[in-house]
Design a binder for these strands. Structure first.
Length: 853
RNA sequence: GCCGGGAUGGCGGAAUCGGUAGACGCAGCGGACUCAAAAUCCGCCGCCGCAAGGUGUGAGGGUUCGAGUCCCUCUCCCGGCACCA
């Protein structure tokens, strides 16, 4: 046995063992309970970052723990391989995106393997491979047949110089990122998926996911944004035509208080009114300019201008003026609102500013209005009844809405309607490196779907985009084809699919890897994913799209489950310290944490930092996410080379609970390494034989180890891995104190098994070196023995008037009276009772006794 | 503004059902080994106090024999959504 802990040797040997034993290959076996553990697959950007290491270590701990518990475990890995970064890299390096992507995959796969993850590599997939994306295309065609996929025009960012469509992140300050040319808005046709058809189910089914974090569920619920209201119209006559101004409201009970209407600047009525009204046209332009993205939009002043157009109140027929308001959004509802200043805060502010009428129509406990300032109760719908509302007087919120909606319906001017914030999902991208949309354009037949037997439509992998337009347009071999309907020459669709499509069903493909259909009979065995792990940044889009995709597959009869992910863990980000300095020219210069020296005061508190290069002070910028620009990233590869994978894994698990952010600490990594060195040294010592004279046999070691084991098992159930790591450290501390205890070997065997999911390599090596067995993965997970936990005498905390004053030892079987007597008689109790009699004695069995005087 | 989550030593973080607050680790201090350094090992380590003791989990109040944990009010921080009609 090697005297010194040499991680590199140990880790290579362990990994070779797992490889030759095919230890992580998952085979369907209905006789055993299954556990499908999945971490979000990475985008192959070049190399792993710390966020990946954390994500996959969490998944691996769960995987190995369940394996040792006897579950049939699947932990696969793949690559989210289509996307824009590959095209950017291609332009820079003049290399096809495919080559860049495949090279990155090869390198990152090696990195993952060097971390010793228990991955079934036989199920590896990359979304850019035709055998994967053909099923994107196949399912898209099924959606087209079902009316779930459809075509409509969409507005895109157009770079007039490069003649190309830009993604939102490629537009910087309204200009193309490459050309600097002002970006134009263009309307082009695109394909949409009808996620709104599933809006109700996507919302309701959130309640069937108890294993999801509350905040993810609220984020999705907000995103779906269901509201109940009434859609109705104000009729009007313009240029001799009868027309209707449609609005949506959740407060139809206040309809009798309408004093004006407001429309968005982009509303057709606003556009029409602006013709021949230069002032209004200028105002509309100003509204469109407004910084729609900024957060200060909330404090933006309410502004408006009358259009001069009047509409009729649908119930009273009164004339109501239409205004253009900068607080009305074209993208929500009808782009127009009824305004009830008395019962809506924004309408109130607007009406006050422009001197418009305010009419109270809801009464709350007889309060009366003042126009001085907005009061909360003006908008109270729970406790109000209608007043000044004619036949609706006295009705409460729901009664009024029902009555008013019925009257509107009778006049054919509206009805109750449920409204969602959620929009259909536009999936067309005018990009090269993505899954081709399987359609053919024929001059005589129009748009024709590619027949199933001609799938997949294969994307050529040798294109090098140059930034000017879609390179597929310059590829006659891709572009030219034959119309499947009439056989005449036709042209292939060059748009590709949003990459969120690729990641919406990969988990199901892992469960039927290599199948000749989209999914096969193995999928029902593994699905749904038991534990999904990934970053909170995917809380809405990826997770919502995956849930939608699952429901579509179920509608098509491909799967029978409703939800793809039973439990979800969102791991926290990895943070590090930021150091910077302002240069003479005023620019900010960042320093990597290993380039600065911390300056401490006498108490050890960090007082500042200096540059190692020039000794001059640098500014401490707090902690933030690891990023290239701030130079505070830590390269996992360097860490593995210096300390080994086990140290990296241990530190990641120990430093913080999985859901919380993790602060990087070089000395914390050192501490993890120190622990593993001590563990190895203890293994060496125990193997060499320990002199029994060192310590007495009755050290209490066994009880201590089993207590810690109980704790560790409890924490594993809570996914609180930091305290599992801590329990392992405590076990080693105890073992080191009593190496000659007759139960030291048993203790070490427990420690190794508890620790092995976190640091599998060193535990694998020690397990074999100390002849516990051939493979620790095959060892049963340890359970605490009740027999090891019992004790003859127990120590109870002694309190007097609720304050801790010491402790009393009593026999384990002592009854209440005996405990009370022992407690009152104790020296500490007598001292603090000051001769007064005990008024009451509280005994908490096994824990404490409290004497009240 | 609304929704969700937080606030515990110099730092990361423990504390399962309301029962010894600060486990474990980092940093720091003292010591051993060494010519010396690194590594390693031993001890100390919330705050005030020589000590006895007091005090202490964002602030204030409450329930309780007993509150970091439960209830009420407030402050601040993080995340999400947001002129959503």
């Amino acid at each position: 046995m090697q005297e010194k802990y040499i991680p590199k040797d140990i880790e290579q040997a362990a990994q070779a063992h797992w490889q030759s034993a095919q230890a992580f290959r998952a085979v369907e076996d209905t006789a055993r309970p299954k556990y499908y553990c999945l971490s979000m697959f990475p985008y192959p950007s070049g190399k792993l970052h710390m966020g990946h290491v954390r994500n996959y270590t969490i998944g691996d701990v769960l995987t190995r723990h369940h394996k040792m518990r006897g579950f049939n475990v699947l932990q696969p890995m793949g690559w989210d391989a289509f996307g824009l970064p590959a095209e950017n890299a291609a332009m820079q390096n003049k290399v096809p995106p495919a080559k860049w992507t495949y090279d990155n995959i090869a390198y990152m796969k090696k990195q993952l393997q060097s971390l010793g993850f228990a991955i079934d590599w036989s199920r590896e997939l990359a979304t850019c491979r035709p055998e994967y994306y053909r099923w994107n295309q196949w399912l898209f065609l099924r959606m087209l047949e079902k009316g779930i996929a459809y075509k409509k025009t969409q507005v895109v960012n157009w770079d007039p110089v490069d003649q190309t469509v830009l993604a939102n992140e490629q537009v910087i300050d309204g200009r193309g990122w490459r050309t600097g040319a002002p970006v134009e808005k263009r309307e082009i046709p695109g394909y949409y998926l009808g996620i709104t058809q599933y809006a109700d189910e996507l919302l309701a089914a959130l309640d069937t996911l108890p294993g999801w974090p509350e905040r993810v569920k609220t984020m999705q619920a907000n995103w779906i944004g269901k509201s109940y209201g009434v859609r109705f119209a104000f009729p009007y006559e313009l240029e001799g035509r009868q027309e209707k101004l449609w609005v949506y409201t959740t407060r139809a009970d206040t309809i009798m208080g309408v004093t004006f209407c407001a429309v968005a600047a982009e509303h057709p009525l606003a556009t029409r009114a602006a013709q021949g009204n230069a002032k209004l046209a200028a105002f509309i332009e100003e509204c469109k300019q407004g910084s729609v993205m900024e957060a200060d939009i909330a404090t933006m002043e309410k502004k408006g201008m009358p259009t001069g157009i009047f509409v009729a109140h649908p119930l009273t027929g009164e004339r109501v003026e239409v205004w253009v308001g900068n607080y009305v959004l074209m993208g929500y509802g009808e782009g127009a609102v009824m305004a009830v200043p008395a019962h809506d805060e924004r309408d109130f502010a607007f009406a006050k500013k422009y001197g418009l009428a305010i009419e109270q129509v809801i009464d709350v406990t007889g309060k009366t209005y003042s126009l001085d300032a907005w009061q909360e109760w003006y908008a109270d719908k729970q406790n109000g009844v209608c007043i000044n509302s004619g036949k609706y007087d006295g009705l409460d919120y729901q009664q009024a809405i029902d009555a008013i909606a019925a009257d509107l319906k009778a006049k054919d001017l509206g009805d109750q309607q449920v409204q969602f914030r959620l929009r259909d999902w536009g999936i067309s991208r005018q990009r090269y490196w993505g899954c081709p949309i399987p359609l053919i354009h024929c001059d005589s037949c129009g748009t024709v779907p590619v027949p199933d037997d001609q799938l997949p439509v294969v994307l050529p992998e040798d294109c090098v985009p140059d930034g000017s337009g879609n390179p597929l347009l310059k590829r006659p071999d891709f572009l030219n084809c034959v119309c499947p309907k009439c056989g005449k020459p036709a042209r292939r669709e060059t748009d590709t699919m949003d990459t969120f499509v690729d990641s919406s069903w990969y988990y199901a493909r892992f469960a039927s890897a290599g199948a000749k259909t989209m999914v096969d009979s193995r999928a029902p065995y593994w699905m749904p994913v038991d534990q999904y792990i990934g970053g909170i940044e995917h809380a809405i889009l990826h997770l919502l799209y995956s849930r939608f995709w699952t429901k579509v597959m179920r509608t098509l009869g491909l799967v029978s489950y409703d939800e793809p992910f039973a439990d979800l863990l969102t791991q926290g980000m990895v943070l590090n310290h930021i150091f910077s300095r302002r240069t003479d020219k005023g620019a900010i210069e960042y320093f990597a944490p290993d380039e600065v020296e911390l300056v401490r005061d006498e108490g050890g508190h960090v007082a500042g930092a200096t540059s190692k290069a020039d000794g001059q002070p640098v500014d401490y910028g707090g902690i933030g996410t690891m990023s290239k620009s701030k130079r505070n990233g830590v390269d996992p590869q360097a860490l593995i080379e210096q300390y080994g994978a086990d140290t990296a894994r241990f530190f990641m698990m120990f430093a913080s609970p999985p859901e919380q952010t993790l602060e990087w600490s070089d000395s914390g990594v050192e501490g993890a390494y120190r622990f593993l060195k001590r563990l190895w040294a203890f293994g060496v010592a125990l193997k060499g034989g320990v002199s029994p004279t060192l310590t007495s046999a009755a050290s209490g070691l066994r009880r201590e180890i089993h207590l810690l084991l109980k704790q560790a098992n409890y924490d594993l159930g809570k996914l609180q891995f930091n305290t599992v790591a801590s329990a392992a450290m405590k076990m080693l501390n105890a073992l080191e104190k009593s190496p000659a205890d007759p139960h030291a070997r048993e203790g070490l065997s427990i420690l190794l098994r508890v620790l092995s999911p976190i640091t599998p390599h060193i535990c694998h090596a020690l397990w074999r070196e100390l002849d516990f067995g051939d493979d620790i993965l095959a060892a049963p997970w340890p359970e605490p023995l009740e027999a090891a936990l019992v004790q003859d005498e127990i120590e109870l905390v002694l309190q007097v008037n609720g304050k801790t004053r010491g402790s009393v030892r009593v026999p384990a079987g002592a009854d209440r009276a005996a405990i009370e007597a022992a407690a009152v008689a104790s020296e500490a109790a007598q001292k603090f009772m000051e001769g007064k009699p005990a008024k009451k004695v509280v005994v908490v069995p096994g824990r404490l006794v409290n004497i009240v005087v």
